[in-house]
Amino acid sequence: MNVKEPDAVIRLWPALLTPITTTGAVDHDDLAALTGDLIARGVDGLVPLGSTGEFTEFGPAERAAILETVVAAAGGHVPVLAGVSGLSTRETCALAAQATDVGVDGVLVFPPLYWKVPEDRLAGHFREVLAATDRPVVLYDFPALTAQPLPPSLLRRLAAEEPQVVGAKLTVRDITAITAALDATRSQRPGFAVVTGFEDLIPAAMWAGADGAISGLANLQPDLLVALVAAVRAGRPEVAALYERVMAIFDVYGLSMPAIPGLKAATAALGRIASPRSRLDGGAGLAEAATLWADAHYDAEAVVA
Rank of each mutant, 00 (worst) to 15 (best):
P111Q: 08
W207H: 14
F198S: 00
P237S: 11
G191L: 12
I202S: 06
A97G: 15
P149M: 10
G212W: 00
L31G: 01
A302N: 07
G36P: 00
P151W: 13
I20F: 04
A204L: 11
V117S: 01
A234V: 01
I214Q: 06
E301S: 13
E57H: 13
A240P: 05
E128G: 13
V84M: 13
D211C: 14
R90K: 15
P190D: 03
W207V: 12
C93F: 13
M247N: 06
M257P: 05
A168F: 14
A61K: 07
D30C: 12
A266D: 04
P48C: 12
T185V: 09
A8E: 02
F55C: 08
V194M: 12
H28I: 05
A305Q: 10
I249L: 15
A259Q: 08
E162F: 13
A147P: 00
P261A: 15
D134P: 07
A144W: 05
P276S: 03
T21Y: 01
T35W: 01
L155P: 01
L16C: 05
G75L: 03
V195T: 12
Q188V: 10
D105N: 08
S85P: 06
A208I: 06
V80K: 03
G53A: 02
E199I: 06
P258F: 04
T176C: 10
L145T: 07
D29V: 11
V71E: 01
I39P: 00
G212C: 02
L49H: 01
P149K: 14
Y243W: 09
I20M: 06
H125D: 03
E161T: 14
H125T: 09
Q98R: 09
E54I: 11
E199M: 12
T21Q: 00
Y140V: 05
T146Y: 03
L255I: 13
F192T: 07
G36L: 09
K169A: 03
D211R: 10
V117G: 02
A205D: 07
